[in-house]
Amino acid sequence: MKCDYKACAEKATTKGYVYGHEKGSEQSDRLIPVNACDKHKHVGGFFEAVDERKRANRE
C-alpha cells in the first residue's frame, strides 16, 4: 500500500485520519481515512487509527 500524501511514493506503514474537507464533497469537514509512510505519520494533523482489539487487550 502506498502513502496517500501528495507526491510521496513511499510504502505506507500506518493507517489513520486527517481532518479536512474532501474535494468535491458536499459534506462539511470530517475525518478522512489515509495511509501514511513513516515520515508523514509525524506530520501535524495526522491522527493514527486505534486498533480497538489491541487496546482492549492492554486494559
Results as ranks from 00 to 15, higher is better:
47 F>I: 08
39 K>Y: 13
45 G>T: 08
49 A>D: 11
56 A>F: 11
25 S>F: 03
23 K>E: 06
28 S>M: 00
54 K>P: 00
53 R>G: 02
43 V>Q: 11
50 V>Y: 02
33 P>V: 07
57 N>W: 03
6 K>I: 05
55 R>K: 14
33 P>S: 13
18 V>S: 01
51 D>S: 09
16 G>I: 02
56 A>R: 14
6 K>G: 02
1 M>I: 08
9 A>S: 13
42 H>Y: 11
47 F>L: 13
16 G>R: 00
31 L>D: 15
43 V>L: 12
40 H>R: 10
54 K>R: 12
31 L>P: 06
5 Y>L: 08
41 K>F: 06
57 N>D: 13
29 D>G: 05
50 V>A: 10
18 V>M: 03
34 V>H: 05
41 K>S: 12
53 R>P: 00
24 G>Q: 05
32 I>S: 10
16 G>Y: 01
19 Y>P: 00
23 K>S: 09
23 K>H: 03
34 V>W: 07
59 E>Q: 13
58 R>Q: 14
6 K>W: 06
59 E>N: 13
28 S>L: 08
55 R>F: 12
2 K>T: 05
18 V>N: 00
47 F>H: 09
41 K>C: 14
18 V>C: 03
29 D>H: 10
9 A>D: 13
15 K>C: 00
40 H>S: 05
34 V>P: 08
27 Q>V: 01
56 A>D: 15
48 E>H: 05
37 C>T: 11
30 R>G: 13
25 S>P: 01
58 R>H: 07
38 D>N: 15
38 D>A: 15
54 K>W: 08
20 G>M: 07
25 S>E: 06
30 R>D: 14
16 G>T: 01
26 E>M: 07
56 A>N: 12
2 K>Y: 07
18 V>H: 01
22 E>S: 04
32 I>Q: 07
4 D>Y: 03
16 G>N: 01
14 T>F: 00
24 G>R: 03
27 Q>A: 13
56 A>E: 15
30 R>E: 12
25 S>C: 04
5 Y>F: 15
25 S>R: 02
58 R>C: 06
42 H>E: 15
13 T>R: 02
15 K>F: 03
59 E>W: 04
45 G>Y: 09
30 R>W: 08
44 G>R: 08
17 Y>V: 01
41 K>N: 15
24 G>D: 05
8 C>G: 04
16 G>E: 00
13 T>E: 08
57 N>C: 03
11 K>T: 11
6 K>R: 09
7 A>M: 04
29 D>V: 04
59 E>V: 11
36 A>K: 08
37 C>H: 08
2 K>R: 09
3 C>G: 04
52 E>F: 09
37 C>W: 05
35 N>Q: 14
35 N>M: 14
20 G>K: 03
28 S>G: 15
49 A>G: 10
10 E>C: 06
55 R>D: 13
24 G>I: 05
19 Y>K: 04
54 K>T: 07
16 G>S: 02
12 A>T: 00
22 E>N: 02
7 A>N: 14
48 E>S: 10
17 Y>S: 02
4 D>S: 10
56 A>Y: 11
1 M>D: 08
1 M>S: 10
40 H>F: 09
10 E>L: 08
30 R>V: 03
46 F>G: 02
23 K>C: 02
1 M>H: 11
35 N>A: 14
51 D>F: 05
